[in-house]
Write a protein that binds this DNA or RNA. Structure first.
Length: 601
DNA sequence: GTAGGGTTAG
């Protein structure tokens, strides 16, 4: 590439320059890189005496840096050729790097700007920092972001709202929404972007309940709400399964006349699907006039997660009939439909087709889904073979799913082999989820000594087990429960309800399967642990606080446990309640003692 | 001539 550029610079494009010379440089619009290179050659040829020289060089520099059909390295070549580049040039280059596949280059370019003043690097200004912070945000470089924050304050730019919004974004993506909130709090006359940045920041940092709370405060304070705000709070609703709030936000969006905007429609489809209302999602989807790939993908993904796999695939076909090209995420949704339906052959076919028909290179998401499909369907050997042929190292999620499947299919030998493999992988060495699962495999095999070793190792590494929790929304308020939680104000009533449930279940002849509890404790305590899984606490609370006969919706952050799954089925029958539970990978609709997943998940 | 938040993933 570089060689080709050099050749062109040195005059090999002479003929084409001639072709363009009948246009004046001023009028020339650049639309392709080859035009940009021609213009460059012409500028070099006519020399610096030309009155439009600088302006045109700037123009083609901006094109090379920022246009989707531009060329970053070419832009850098031009930048480096400027005798006295100004801050606009540097900012443009930093901006280009910040949205490129290699955002760290933005920081590299920035350093000379704050080093000892040199002839070549201009001083940073208020435009420089938002781009730099974006790079930090994308790379989750919170420490560097904090240093930048210091530089910003020292240079007197700490009150620039664009910079403040970028800081909120950077801190939140880096898992520091507390610091983001400090920035937000200190802002005087906060506008809609400030509020939206902070709401979105809470969602990015996995704190959707706070996001919803802030949205409500924003509305109470009478701050105008726009489509970005609505999209952000809908993401929070989707995450928590807060259907009531989601419906209210839907109303707000319609009142403001922004309910049909493409981004809002997609967020609504996603929210309804993730809150368990696949019909509402479909209604929104059907009303979207010009469906883009986002809308199609959100709908296909929703159908797949609800186990409507045939519908998902049919919609995928229809999407192509409409001339909409799938992207990588669409294919993940399609593969997850295959996974949930146990369609092994189709899975293979889509893996091939995405590359052949659409030129999409499969990512770890696609391989991960395919491995899960194979493994859960019982093709453990094929799954292992598939992993070996992957062009990348398996990651933590993939290994976890694989080990989970070994556990489901009672293949302890393979699990143990995978564990050894997993432990030597660099990428997984700090994934607490993998360790927990490994510990669980040992525990279920009764290897308490090995389990203890894993626990000690986790301690050494300072890894904490991510808590399992379930959420339920009652009267527009979200309640969260952890295992054996006693912190809820109504804990006493909840535990009494649980006892009542157990009585009912015993009458139905149900006894818990104790091997599911992966702790070295006696049987009575095991039974206690099982009956206090977070989803059961949420369920008991739901039974107390919702109308008899109404649906109960629960969202949990882990894959469903076999025992709880069995209990949910029974309760749906004994209490005549439809229970809609979302777990980490899909929905379970319990009704009349059966589950929509047909006990396959 | 440059800037801020915003939809779909195993």
């Amino acid at each position: 590439m570089r060689q080709r550029q050099q050749n062109l610079l040195e005059g090999s494009c002479h003929a084409r320059v001639e072709q363009h010379s009948r246009f004046s440089l001023k009028e020339m619009e650049i639309t392709t890189m080859s035009e940009a290179i021609q213009l460059h050659a012409q500028i070099l040829k006519t020399g610096s005496t030309h009155h439009n020289h600088n302006q045109n060089l700037s123009k083609l520099f901006t094109f090379s840096a920022l246009s989707p059909s531009g060329d970053l390295s070419y832009a850098r070549l031009i930048l480096d050729s400027f005798p006295t580049p100004n801050s606009y040039h540097y900012n443009t280059m930093i901006r280009a790097y910040s949205q490129s596949s290699d955002p760290i280059q933005a920081l590299h370019l920035f350093l000379p700007m704050v080093a000892k003043p040199t002839r070549h690097a201009p001083r940073p200004d208020k435009f420089t920092y938002p781009f730099l912070l974006k790079s930090c945000a994308r790379l989750r470089l919170t420490r560097e972001g904090k240093q930048l924050h210091g530089v910003i304050v020292k240079s007197g730019l700490g009150l620039d709202r664009y910079i403040q919004h970028s800081l909120i974004h950077m801190y939140s993506l880096g898992g520091e929404s507390g610091l983001a909130y400090k920035v937000f709090e200190r802002m005087s006359d906060r506008d809609v972007v400030s509020w939206t940045s902070m709401i979105d920041g809470f969602v990015d940092d996995g704190r959707p309940v706070e996001a919803i709370r802030l949205f409500e405060k924003m509305v109470d304070d009478g701050v105008e709400v726009n489509d970005a705000t609505v999209v952000s709070v809908l993401r929070a609703c989707a995450e928590t399964g807060a259907l009531g709030v989601g419906r209210r936000v839907h109303g707000v969006a319609e009142d403001r006349g922004i309910g049909l905007k493409p981004n809002v429609s997609t967020a609504l489809i996603d929210m309804f699907a993730k809150c368990g209302c696949i019909q509402s999602a479909r209604r929104v989807f059907d009303n979207v006039v010009d469906k883009d790939v986002f809308a199609w993908t959100a709908m296909i993904s929703g159908l797949a997660s609800h186990g409507h796999c045939q519908d998902a695939i049919e919609l995928f076909c229809k999407m192509q009939d409409f001339g909409v090209k799938p992207d990588g995420r669409t294919m993940t949704a399609v593969l997850s439909a295959c996974r949930n339906a146990r369609w092994v052959e189709d899975g293979y076919a889509y893996m091939t087709s995405m590359q052949k028909d659409y030129g999409l290179r499969p990512t770890i998401q696609h391989y991960g889904c395919m491995v899960d499909l194979l493994a859960r369907a019982g093709h453990l050997k094929d799954a292992e073979e598939f992993i070996r042929k992957m062009p990348m190292e398996p990651d933590a999620v993939l290994c976890r799913n694989m080990i989970w499947a070994c556990k489901v299919h009672n293949d302890a030998d393979r699990a143990e082999r995978l564990i050894k493999y997993l432990q030597q992988l660099k990428t997984n060495s700090n994934d607490s989820g993998s360790f927990v699962l490994i510990g669980n495999v040992y525990a279920s095999a009764g290897k308490w000594h090995d389990k203890a070793k894993v626990r000690d190792l986790m301690k050494q590494k300072g890894l904490v087990k991510p808590p399992g929790f379930s959420r339920i929304e009652v009267d527009g308020e979200i309640h969260e429960f952890a295992v054996g939680d006693s912190g809820h104000p109504e804990a006493e009533t909840i535990y009494r309800k649980l006892e009542e449930i157990e009585d009912y279940l015993r009458k139905e002849g149900y006894s818990p399967k104790l091997s599911e509890v992966l702790l070295e404790i006696d049987d009575e305590e095991k039974a206690f642990q099982l009956s206090h899984h977070s989803e059961k606490l949420a369920l008991a609370f739901g039974l107390i606080r919702t109308r008899p006969g109404s649906e109960i919706r629960i969202v949990k952050n882990l894959r469903s446990c076999e025992n709880c799954h069995a209990v949910m089925k029974l309760i749906s029958k004994v209490y005549r309640r439809e229970i809609i539970m979302r777990d980490r990978i899909r929905f379970h609709h319990f009704k009349n003692g059966d589950c929509s997943c047909k006990d396959y998940w």
